[in-house]
């Protein structure tokens, strides 16, 4: 199957510090990959490079056939095909949930208000938060906010969804409701790149698991093999820590 995301020899520095070292990665359509690793390993940076929230200095990133570079037109095209969900939700506090979801379709995709609200309602129902549509983010619980954030990203009808530690800021009771939504999304055929520590989710949904450490991809295997037969010592150590 053709890759929808391709990273070739991607390198990135923050000043003197190299945060991504020779990353090579391919993601096929409808594939779900989970990226894990200790903090500071560069996993968030990797994900953020895919929709150009961070800029890479060396190498190529090709998303759905479009090469990512300084060309703004390409960047905006890619961003409308790639949705992102953040650890801190980042809902817009001055707008209702419904407005959060209709904002981008109206202003970026130039849809009419009616069309945008139809799309928004559809996705808010999908994440089971439709009864909170008229409320403001501050009035919702963490789990509800994250689900709203997922709906907001879905309203742009992307081909790829990126998740940057979506459950790390949530109370344990709320993690399940968000993961359920993500599993549902995965089963519906969405291409997903998820940075997470939730190994249960990885086992259930991921096609491949990638382990990163100190800016490099240390191990990359189909899920079963990754958990049952990790090759690298680092991976084994990480797994033993996190699965306890």
């Amino acid at each position: 199957m053709q890759s929808i995301i391709e990273l070739k020899n991607v390198n990135k520095w923050f000043g003197e510090f190299q945060v991504l070292k020779d990353i090579n990665l391919q993601v096929s359509q409808k594939e779900k990959i989970v990226i894990c690793g200790p903090s500071g390993s560069g996993k968030s940076t990797l994900i953020r490079c895919i929709n150009r929230l961070e800029e890479h200095q060396k190498g190529d990133i090709i998303v759905d056939g479009i090469t990512l570079d300084a060309n703004t037109k390409n960047i905006e095209k890619i961003r409308s095909e790639v949705g992102m969900v953040f650890q801190q939700f980042n809902l817009f506090p001055h707008l209702t949930i419904l407005d959060n979801c209709t904002l981008a379709p109206i202003w970026v995709k130039k849809k009419t208000k009616k069309e945008a609200e139809e799309i928004a309602t559809k996705y808010l129902e999908k994440v089971q938060i439709i009864d909170q549509a008229k409320k403001f983010p501050g009035q919702l619980s963490g789990g509800q906010q994250q689900r709203a954030a997922i709906a907001r990203a879905l309203c742009m009808e992307p081909n790829i969804m990126l998740f940057d530690e979506p459950t790390s800021a949530l109370d344990p009771e709320m993690i399940k409701e968000v993961l359920d939504v993500m599993v549902d999304l995965a089963n519906g055929g969405m291409t997903m790149c998820v940075v997470t520590h939730e190994m249960g989710f990885a086992k259930e949904v991921a096609d491949r698991v990638i382990f990163m450490d100190e800016g490099k991809i240390v191990e990359e295997k189909p899920t079963q093999q990754f958990f049952n037969n990790p090759e690298n010592e680092r991976t084994k150590l990480f797994l033993s820590q996190i699965l306890n």
Binding site: L53, R79, L91
Partner: peptide, 11 residues
């Protein structure tokens, strides 16, 4: 994060 979210939606 607000800048990020707005940018990620294509604005």
């Amino acid at each position: 994060g607000q800048y990020d979210a707005a940018n990620s939606l294509g604005m």
